[in-house]
């Protein structure tokens, strides 16, 4: 089975750790893995996209429009921006957080209304969650990434233990407990 997963958000939100963790899970399952990351200028509060692919043999490290099984989005506007990458019948897991981009802050553009409702109206399977609140509940607001990963995990059909093992291997000990809890809160989340 091939997995095509896209993680999108705003530079600085922790998308890189999520993709690293996801890549680790697939590698532990014995699959070929490719993860493509964004470093450098686009990390400074810009829109960022990370691709995670796994399967018997993976060539391209990126995912094109209409190909993603799952999009994990850390921010509403980014859900809209990268929506075209979702395949027909794919699932969008979206944080409900809104972060105004600079053109909105300067008044040059307007943040669209009711983004997630309008995406749902297009017939897209969408799971929306206030991941920031769940992360706070887990004890670390920075664990938004792991909460969202937990929610998405349910749609990948992989055993929960593989995930917990990967978290243990990837996350520094100091933050381990909060992240394990964040994952479970996400995994058990009911939209």
């Amino acid at each position: 089975m091939k997995h095509n997963i896209i993680i999108v958000g705003v530079g600085g939100q922790g998308t890189l750790l999520a993709s690293k963790l996801l890549g680790r899970v697939f590698m532990d399952l014995g699959l070929d893995v490719k993860v493509s990351e964004v470093h450098g200028m686009s990390q400074r509060g810009g829109s960022v996209i990370t691709y995670v692919r796994a399967g018997e043999k993976v060539y391209s490290p990126i995912i094109a429009e209409g190909e993603a099984d799952i999009i994990i989005s850390f921010e509403q506007l980014e859900s809209a921006r990268w929506l075209s990458y979702l395949k027909k019948g794919g699932t969008l897991v979206s944080n409900t957080q809104q972060i105004d981009p600079m053109p909105v802050i300067t008044g040059a553009a307007v943040y669209p209304e009711k983004v997630l409702e309008r995406i749902a109206a297009l017939g897209v399977n969408i799971v929306a969650a206030d991941a920031l609140a769940l992360a706070a509940e887990a004890g670390n607001v920075k664990s938004v990434n792991v909460v969202l990963l937990g929610i998405a995990a349910k749609y990948m059909g992989l055993p929960e233990q593989v995930w917990q093992d990967a978290i243990t291997a990837t996350v520094p000990p100091k933050f381990l407990e909060a992240n394990r809890k964040a994952f479970t809160l996400g995994y058990n989340y009911e939209a």
């Binding site: 705003v10 530079g11 600085g12 200028m41 686009s42 990390q43 400074r44 509060g45 810009g46 829109s47 094109a64 429009e65 209409g66 190909e67 506007l77 980014e78 809209a80 921006r81 929506l83 075209s84 990458y85 979702l86 395949k87 027909k88 981009p101 600079m102 053109p103 909105v104 040059a108 553009a109 307007v110 943040y111 669209p112 983004v115 309008r118 995406i119 297009l122 017939g123 897209v124």
Partner: peptide, 20 residues
């Protein structure tokens, strides 16, 4: 050949990188 895709029905404001 091209893949099928859906798009958000409105122009989306850009998100350029910014000073932190």
């Amino acid at each position: 050949e091209e893949a099928e895709s859906v798009a958000f029905p409105e122009a989306i404001p850009g998100r350029p990188p910014v000073l932190c």
